[in-house]
Amino acid sequence: MSQVSVDYYPKVLQTELKKMNPGENKLIELSIKPELAHNIREGKFYSINSTTVLSKMKYLYIGRVATCRSGGCSINRTSESGSSSEYFDYLIFFDALGKILQVKVSNFQTSRGHEITTSGWLSQFKNYNGKSELRAGKNVDAIAGATITVDAITYDIADKTRLLSMILKTNRLQN
Protein backbone atom coordinates (compact mmCIF):
# COMPACT_ATOMS: atom_id res chain seq x y z
CA MET A 1 0.00 0.00 0.00
CA SER A 2 1.03 3.58 -0.55
CA GLN A 3 3.02 4.81 2.42
CA VAL A 4 1.58 7.66 4.44
CA SER A 5 4.57 8.51 6.61
CA VAL A 6 8.14 8.93 5.42
CA ASP A 7 10.05 5.67 5.00
CA TYR A 8 13.36 6.40 6.75
CA TYR A 9 15.06 3.30 5.43
CA PRO A 10 13.92 3.06 1.82
CA LYS A 11 15.29 0.58 -0.66
CA VAL A 12 17.20 3.29 -2.52
CA LEU A 13 19.07 4.14 0.70
CA GLN A 14 19.92 0.51 1.35
CA THR A 15 21.25 0.18 -2.19
CA GLU A 16 23.31 3.37 -2.00
CA LEU A 17 24.79 2.45 1.37
CA LYS A 18 25.81 -0.94 0.05
CA LYS A 19 27.22 0.56 -3.14
CA MET A 20 29.27 3.27 -1.43
CA ASN A 21 30.22 1.29 1.67
CA PRO A 22 30.32 -2.46 1.13
CA GLY A 23 31.13 -2.88 4.82
CA GLU A 24 28.78 -2.42 7.73
CA ASN A 25 26.94 0.92 7.97
CA LYS A 26 25.23 2.25 11.03
CA LEU A 27 22.84 5.19 10.91
CA ILE A 28 22.69 7.29 14.07
CA GLU A 29 20.07 10.02 14.21
CA LEU A 30 21.63 13.41 14.92
CA SER A 31 20.39 15.21 17.97
CA ILE A 32 19.22 18.65 16.99
CA LYS A 33 18.70 21.59 19.30
CA PRO A 34 15.04 22.66 19.55
CA GLU A 35 15.77 26.09 18.04
CA LEU A 36 17.06 24.35 14.90
CA ALA A 37 14.66 21.39 14.95
CA HIS A 38 11.63 23.56 14.24
CA ASN A 39 12.96 23.97 10.67
CA ILE A 40 12.23 20.31 9.98
CA ARG A 41 8.63 19.30 9.47
CA GLU A 42 9.04 15.77 8.18
CA GLY A 43 12.65 14.67 8.03
CA LYS A 44 15.66 13.39 9.96
CA PHE A 45 19.42 13.86 9.86
CA TYR A 46 21.72 10.91 10.46
CA SER A 47 25.43 10.40 10.82
CA ILE A 48 26.78 7.38 8.98
CA ASN A 49 29.21 5.22 10.89
CA SER A 50 30.91 3.03 8.38
CA THR A 51 33.47 0.29 8.68
CA THR A 52 34.91 1.50 5.38
CA VAL A 53 37.51 4.03 6.49
CA LEU A 54 37.80 5.76 3.14
CA SER A 55 34.08 6.33 2.75
CA LYS A 56 33.30 9.97 2.11
CA MET A 57 29.64 9.57 3.08
CA LYS A 58 29.30 10.91 6.62
CA TYR A 59 25.85 12.46 6.96
CA LEU A 60 22.43 11.81 5.56
CA TYR A 61 19.14 13.68 5.40
CA ILE A 62 15.85 11.96 4.62
CA GLY A 63 12.69 13.99 4.40
CA ARG A 64 9.44 14.82 2.71
CA VAL A 65 8.56 17.86 0.65
CA ALA A 66 4.89 18.69 0.31
CA THR A 67 4.26 20.26 -3.06
CA CYS A 68 1.02 21.21 -4.66
CA ARG A 69 -0.78 20.30 -7.79
CA SER A 70 0.01 22.58 -10.69
CA GLY A 71 -2.83 25.07 -10.76
CA GLY A 72 -4.15 24.11 -7.36
CA CYS A 73 -2.62 24.28 -3.92
CA SER A 74 -3.93 23.50 -0.49
CA ILE A 75 -5.78 26.46 1.01
CA ASN A 76 -4.00 25.92 4.32
CA ARG A 77 -0.37 25.78 3.19
CA THR A 78 0.90 25.48 6.76
CA SER A 79 -0.86 22.19 7.39
CA GLU A 80 1.08 18.98 7.68
CA SER A 81 1.36 16.99 4.50
CA GLY A 82 -0.28 13.95 6.10
CA SER A 83 -3.46 14.64 4.15
CA SER A 84 -1.72 15.85 1.01
CA SER A 85 -1.62 13.65 -2.05
CA GLU A 86 1.17 15.72 -3.61
CA TYR A 87 4.61 15.15 -2.10
CA PHE A 88 7.94 13.49 -2.63
CA ASP A 89 10.49 11.93 -0.27
CA TYR A 90 14.19 12.32 -0.92
CA LEU A 91 17.68 11.78 0.52
CA ILE A 92 20.81 13.91 0.60
CA PHE A 93 24.20 12.32 1.25
CA PHE A 94 26.82 14.69 2.70
CA ASP A 95 30.55 14.45 3.35
CA ALA A 96 32.20 15.27 6.68
CA LEU A 97 32.14 19.02 5.91
CA GLY A 98 28.44 19.08 4.98
CA LYS A 99 29.01 19.19 1.24
CA ILE A 100 26.51 17.31 -0.93
CA LEU A 101 27.76 14.08 -2.46
CA GLN A 102 24.51 12.84 -3.90
CA VAL A 103 20.74 13.45 -3.94
CA LYS A 104 18.17 10.70 -4.56
CA VAL A 105 14.38 10.73 -4.70
CA SER A 106 12.95 7.67 -2.95
CA ASN A 107 9.22 8.21 -3.39
CA PHE A 108 7.51 10.53 -5.88
CA GLN A 109 3.79 11.20 -5.43
CA THR A 110 3.37 14.40 -7.40
CA SER A 111 1.36 14.83 -10.57
CA ARG A 112 4.05 16.78 -12.42
CA GLY A 113 7.78 17.27 -12.35
CA HIS A 114 8.86 13.62 -12.42
CA GLU A 115 11.95 14.79 -14.37
CA ILE A 116 13.53 15.89 -11.07
CA THR A 117 13.89 12.26 -10.00
CA THR A 118 16.60 11.47 -12.54
CA SER A 119 20.16 11.17 -11.31
CA GLY A 120 21.29 13.46 -14.17
CA TRP A 121 19.13 16.37 -13.03
CA LEU A 122 19.90 15.80 -9.35
CA SER A 123 23.65 15.69 -10.04
CA GLN A 124 23.70 19.49 -10.36
CA PHE A 125 23.46 19.73 -6.56
CA LYS A 126 26.71 17.77 -6.09
CA ASN A 127 29.36 19.76 -4.17
CA TYR A 128 26.82 22.32 -2.94
CA ASN A 129 27.67 23.37 0.62
CA GLY A 130 24.94 25.88 1.45
CA LYS A 131 27.18 28.94 1.15
CA SER A 132 25.71 30.23 -2.09
CA GLU A 133 22.13 30.79 -3.20
CA LEU A 134 20.34 28.19 -5.29
CA ARG A 135 17.88 29.62 -7.81
CA ALA A 136 15.78 27.62 -10.23
CA GLY A 137 16.21 28.98 -13.73
CA LYS A 138 19.61 30.48 -12.86
CA ASN A 139 22.09 27.99 -11.41
CA VAL A 140 19.53 25.18 -11.22
CA ASP A 141 17.99 23.91 -14.46
CA ALA A 142 14.32 24.76 -14.84
CA ILE A 143 11.88 22.21 -16.25
CA ALA A 144 8.94 23.35 -18.36
CA GLY A 145 5.64 22.50 -16.69
CA ALA A 146 7.32 21.55 -13.41
CA THR A 147 8.02 24.94 -11.81
CA ILE A 148 6.45 24.06 -8.47
CA THR A 149 8.38 20.81 -8.02
CA VAL A 150 11.70 22.32 -9.15
CA ASP A 151 11.28 25.27 -6.80
CA ALA A 152 10.28 22.99 -3.94
CA ILE A 153 13.28 20.66 -4.13
CA THR A 154 15.71 23.54 -4.82
CA TYR A 155 14.51 25.41 -1.76
CA ASP A 156 14.53 22.33 0.45
CA ILE A 157 18.03 21.20 -0.57
CA ALA A 158 19.47 24.66 0.16
CA ASP A 159 17.55 24.81 3.44
CA LYS A 160 18.63 21.38 4.68
CA THR A 161 22.25 21.85 3.62
CA ARG A 162 22.45 25.09 5.59
CA LEU A 163 20.70 23.44 8.50
CA LEU A 164 23.27 20.62 8.58
CA SER A 165 26.16 23.08 8.65
CA MET A 166 24.47 24.84 11.59
CA ILE A 167 23.96 21.50 13.36
CA LEU A 168 27.61 20.54 12.79
CA LYS A 169 28.78 23.94 14.01
CA THR A 170 26.64 23.68 17.16
CA ASN A 171 27.83 20.14 17.85
CA ARG A 172 31.48 21.20 17.39
CA LEU A 173 31.02 24.03 19.89
CA GLN A 174 29.47 21.62 22.36
CA ASN A 175 32.39 19.24 22.00
Binding site: I75, S79, S83
Partner: peptide
Protein backbone atom coordinates in the same frame (compact mmCIF):
# COMPACT_ATOMS: atom_id res chain seq x y z
CA UNK B 1 -10.73 21.41 5.39
CA UNK B 2 -7.43 21.62 7.34
CA UNK B 3 -5.31 21.65 4.22
CA UNK B 4 -7.36 19.06 2.40
CA UNK B 5 -9.03 21.52 0.07
CA UNK B 6 -6.99 22.68 -2.91
CA UNK B 7 -7.85 25.74 -4.89
CA UNK B 8 -6.21 27.38 -7.86
CA UNK B 9 -6.78 28.37 -11.41
CA UNK B 10 -5.49 29.86 -14.59
Amino acid sequence: ADGKLMIGGY
